[in-house]
Design a protein around this nucleic acid. Structure first.
Lengths: 210, 210
DNA sequence: TTAGCACTCAGTATAAATACTGATTAACAT
DNA sequence: ATGTTAATCAGTATTTATACTGAGTGCTAA
């Protein structure tokens, strides 16, 4: 069996050393490099490093660690990113998942779980433990809790607006005057607590109304 | 300790009987009712049934089971819904979570896990096992895979548009002419393959570009 | 070195949205 | 009964967006 090749990315040398020390004990895992920043990581990849897994802290000094996951995934399709962080924040987890991360580990995990995560991801599967899943679930449930109280008619209008129909077109479709639709739009914006159509559609999309 | 009061909702009597038979063995769980449809369930709740948990199949004959979770949550805040279904579909899981479900079980789970889920939810915590979390994660990662290829500048403009700034305002902020911003808008819409600003914002929101 | 793309900018005309002022009717719950 | 809300409709003026025609510069990768 081939070794799982890993690059560790974290701005704290001591932490990198610790990880290396732990992972060195396993014959099927090999640390092929370390980076102390996103820039350094990207430079290494550009220079030809080709790890199976990048183990990455997302509170790096240069920029947002979550964005780099996406970037890396686009440029180096085969590399799988496992986030390791102290941030027990559902939004971070969701963002990481959406950006293509293969795993999300809290720094509170133990050795055994770290290794299990790496091996799981090494097989091409994703690794998110119960705690992390919980964070994600809780966050998603919260997002939905923004009550809207739009009437049926308003929802209907909102959906048509979001589909790109103009006020006039909607009026024709619903057999009412354009004035009516305009009133609806104003009321919808008031209820969603936004100032204009762009924000209205954004908020509607975020709240899954459309 | 109080018993966890459960209503089983499923359109197959045999399945309800099976669940009842399993759960009856546990002293701290009590089946206080059964419903064979959403309508029946809602009627029971209206009549005063007040379960801790509703164990619900989401492929019921009358309407979409996922929507009823939301409805129930709004009208009966204290009731926790646990979905039990044969649909191993990430989108369903995501939707269930967003609608406020406290758990999602595949019909392939065993007795032990069913009971564990009920007890966990009974304590007010959510229960989503590794398999289900996996489905959810996979689905979310997929959604993100729609490539966009917007340039940095275009993303910047897009985000400002979504925040409700007008073309002129954006032009002032970025120290370029309004023409330039208009060109950007047109290019963004072309790249996102949409016909107007409303669709542009909707698509951007759905793809988490903003 | 040439082709493509990002980014910038222009005029003219029309279509649409927004801001302000209002109003009537019907349903529904306190 | 009375207040609240949904749903409908109106005029006028202004601001924005859109559609059509374009173009020049500078970078980069084939």
């Amino acid at each position: 069996m081939n070794k799982i090749e890993v690059i560790i990315t974290d701005d704290h040398k001591l932490f990198r050393d610790g990880l290396r020390s732990i992972l060195q004990q396993f014959d099927d895992i090999e640390i092929i490099g370390e980076a102390s920043s996103e820039i350094e990581l990207m430079r290494m990849l550009k220079e030809g490093y080709d790890p199976d897994i990048v183990l990455m802290d997302i509170s790096l000094p240069d920029g947002n660690g979550l964005d780099i996951i996406k970037q890396m995934k686009e440029e180096y399709v085969s590399i799988k990113c496992v986030v390791i962080t102290m941030h027990a924040d559902g939004q971070y987890v969701v963002k990481a998942v959406k950006n293509g991360a293969y795993g999300y580990l809290l720094k509170s995990v133990d050795q055994a779980e770290l290794v299990e995560a790496i091996k799981t991801v090494g097989l091409g599967k994703k690794y998110f433990n119960a705690e992390v899943s919980q964070l994600m679930v809780t966050d998603m449930a919260l997002q939905q809790d923004q009550e809207t109280n739009l009437s049926e008619r308003e929802l209907e209008v909102l959906r048509l607006v979001a589909q790109g129909y103009t006020t006039k077109e909607i009026a024709n479709q619903l057999y009412v005057s354009a004035r009516t639709i305009e009133t609806h739009r104003v009321n919808i914006m008031r209820k969603l607590n936004v100032q204009n159509s762009a924000e209205m559609i954004k908020k509607a999309a975020k709240c899954d109304l459309i």
